[in-house]
Simulated scan of single mutants.
Amino acid sequence: MPHMYILRCADGSYYVGSTRDLERRMFEHGTGAGAAYTRKRLPVVLVFAEEYEFVHEAYEREKQVQGWSRRKREALIAGEYDRLPGASRSRYRRQSG
């Protein structure tokens, strides 16, 4: 089944990805055969995964979560879904006048 997943890297950063085979992909990341980003930040730990019926759903979720702030990703990882709306990036609003 396709998955969207989040890894915590050795430097404390997060990597968001999607795959058809989570076990294989985790092996690749763990051995340095995964993404260039994680290769430079080993070891990595799987901290979150969601399963989807279709690959395109996992990929769309990956792209959504990649656009999130660190705070919002951490709320998702912690299962604190009620914090997700408030954890969005604040937008600078120009004051007119």
Score class of each variant (00 low, 15 high):
22 L>D: 06
57 E>A: 14
84 L>F: 08
22 L>Y: 05
32 G>I: 04
56 H>Y: 12
74 E>M: 10
95 Q>M: 15
64 Q>R: 15
24 R>Y: 09
42 L>C: 02
12 G>D: 10
67 G>L: 06
51 E>P: 01
71 R>Q: 12
64 Q>N: 06
26 M>D: 05
76 L>Y: 11
76 L>M: 10
31 T>I: 03
16 V>H: 05
15 Y>N: 01
81 Y>M: 13
28 E>S: 05
10 A>R: 06
46 L>R: 11
30 G>R: 06
95 Q>S: 11
94 R>S: 13
89 R>V: 04
56 H>R: 12
35 A>V: 00
62 E>T: 11
95 Q>A: 14
90 S>T: 13
65 V>E: 06
31 T>D: 04
61 R>A: 15
2 P>F: 05
5 Y>V: 06
75 A>H: 11
70 R>P: 01
46 L>W: 05
36 A>I: 09
8 R>S: 07
11 D>M: 07
29 H>Y: 01
19 T>G: 01
70 R>A: 11
34 G>D: 04
15 Y>W: 03
38 T>L: 07
77 I>F: 04
23 E>H: 05
94 R>P: 01
78 A>E: 13
24 R>Q: 10
53 E>P: 02
25 R>M: 03
22 L>G: 03
22 L>H: 02
27 F>E: 13
19 T>V: 05
32 G>Y: 04
59 Y>I: 14
51 E>M: 07
50 E>G: 07
39 R>Y: 00
19 T>Y: 02
40 K>N: 09
5 Y>L: 06
5 Y>F: 14
7 L>E: 01
36 A>D: 12
30 G>S: 12
34 G>C: 04
18 S>H: 14
12 G>R: 02
23 E>I: 03
68 W>V: 09
47 V>T: 13
77 I>W: 07
1 M>V: 11
65 V>M: 12
24 R>D: 10
50 E>Y: 05
58 A>R: 01
10 A>E: 05
7 L>D: 06
41 R>L: 10
89 R>L: 13
38 T>H: 05
28 E>D: 14
32 G>C: 01
81 Y>V: 08
5 Y>I: 08
47 V>H: 02
62 E>G: 09
83 R>L: 15
1 M>N: 08
12 G>V: 03
66 Q>V: 13
66 Q>L: 15
45 V>R: 14
64 Q>E: 15
68 W>I: 08
6 I>Y: 01
97 G>V: 10
58 A>W: 02
56 H>D: 11
7 L>K: 04
16 V>I: 15
89 R>N: 10
3 H>W: 10
51 E>I: 01
22 L>E: 07
66 Q>D: 01
31 T>A: 02
21 D>N: 14
3 H>G: 00
78 A>M: 07
51 E>D: 04
19 T>L: 02
78 A>T: 08
74 E>V: 03
35 A>D: 13
74 E>P: 02
87 A>N: 08
27 F>A: 12
21 D>G: 00
27 F>K: 08
22 L>W: 06
86 G>L: 12
91 R>E: 08
23 E>D: 13
48 F>H: 15
59 Y>H: 11
41 R>C: 04
94 R>K: 14
97 G>E: 14
97 G>K: 13
13 S>N: 07
20 R>D: 11
94 R>H: 13
49 A>E: 13
80 E>P: 01
25 R>L: 02
80 E>Y: 08
60 E>S: 15
16 V>T: 09
